[in-house]
Amino acid sequence: IVMFKGFKKPPKFSKFGKYIKRIYLLGFPNILMQMAYTFYIFGLNLILKTFSDQVVTVLGLYYKWQSVIFIPLGAMQTCIVPVISFNFAAGLFGRCRKTLKDSVLLGMALMLIGVLSFELIPTQLLMTFSKDADVISIGTVAFRIIGISFIPLVTSLIYPVYFQAIGSAFKSSMLTILRTVVLLVPLGFIFSKIGLDWFWLTFPCTEIITTIVGFILYKKENKKISLKFTERTR
């Protein structure tokens, strides 16, 4: 294994299984997130197909723009994992909390650009990819409703990353499953029965509920960590 000051002898082959298991355990939330993405996109497309092909196109255009807007947020998520993990291992829990707080504030500032874009210029965003009048008409309404979800979405995505960073893979996975499997598709199905415009509320509702659950888990985890730290210092 290459280290900063040279080479470090790798562990015995018999220990590899334990390390690999640990790596996959901590990385499972990310694997799950990628798998869940495919699942809920497929589910939402099936729901929207009952309206029209143009509605499915609108959802696709939303995810095109989402992938662009989320680039800085995704990069920040990747960067905070080692920072939180290092400080957690060192027992510097205050730094972990500060990193989370700063990440949320920065993420919300970044997502504010997305909110303003979706609220103020949805037509221009849609016309970048489509000139279809129906797509633009449906998409304008959809983008303005979905746009309000970008702020709570920051916390609904960062809480799982935080739990992953402190080694709580179960809580991280639970939030991912809650957001993508339990909420997005079922809520989309329920709202679609009321009407197309209602369907787009699936996104803000999902992010708000996930954020609330994530905050509750975070507060409970904080109490547990504080108790452990108190016991160590006695």
Results as ranks from 00 to 15, higher is better:
92 L>E: 15
41 I>T: 14
133 A>F: 07
162 Y>S: 13
147 G>T: 11
129 F>K: 03
67 S>M: 07
104 V>K: 12
217 L>M: 10
132 D>C: 09
217 L>P: 00
122 P>L: 01
225 I>T: 04
34 Q>S: 15
196 L>F: 08
166 I>Y: 04
204 P>F: 05
112 L>C: 14
156 S>E: 01
24 Y>C: 14
198 W>T: 08
219 K>G: 00
10 P>T: 08
93 F>R: 09
209 I>P: 13
29 P>H: 04
164 Q>R: 12
42 F>W: 13
190 I>K: 06
99 T>Y: 01
53 D>H: 13
144 R>Q: 15
147 G>Q: 06
160 P>E: 11
180 T>A: 05
229 F>Y: 04
124 Q>V: 05
230 T>E: 08
186 P>G: 12
78 T>D: 14
16 F>K: 10
216 I>P: 00
210 T>D: 11
213 V>P: 13
151 I>S: 02
58 V>K: 01
106 L>I: 15
19 Y>E: 14
189 F>K: 02
134 D>H: 06
218 Y>Q: 08
114 G>S: 09
151 I>W: 04
166 I>S: 10
129 F>L: 11
151 I>P: 01
140 T>I: 04
59 L>T: 05
77 Q>L: 12
174 M>K: 05
169 A>P: 02
116 L>M: 15
59 L>Q: 15
172 S>K: 11
7 F>Y: 06
109 A>W: 03
120 L>W: 03
14 S>K: 15
176 T>K: 03
74 G>V: 02
82 P>N: 11
75 A>I: 11
191 F>R: 05
65 W>G: 08
136 I>C: 04
64 K>G: 00
42 F>G: 04
102 D>N: 12
144 R>S: 02
37 Y>G: 01
174 M>D: 00
200 W>K: 04
206 T>G: 07
151 I>C: 05
229 F>N: 11
105 L>W: 11
139 G>F: 01
138 I>K: 06
75 A>D: 09
107 G>K: 05
138 I>D: 03
41 I>C: 05
101 K>G: 00
89 A>K: 15
99 T>S: 14
56 V>A: 06
91 G>M: 05
149 S>F: 01
178 L>V: 10
148 I>S: 08
54 Q>F: 00
218 Y>H: 13
6 G>Y: 12
95 R>K: 15
129 F>V: 07
7 F>T: 02
230 T>F: 07
39 F>K: 00
51 F>I: 01
55 V>E: 11
149 S>Y: 00
121 I>P: 02
93 F>Q: 08
185 V>K: 05
8 K>A: 15
119 E>S: 12
2 V>A: 06
223 K>N: 01
133 A>I: 14
152 P>L: 08
172 S>W: 08
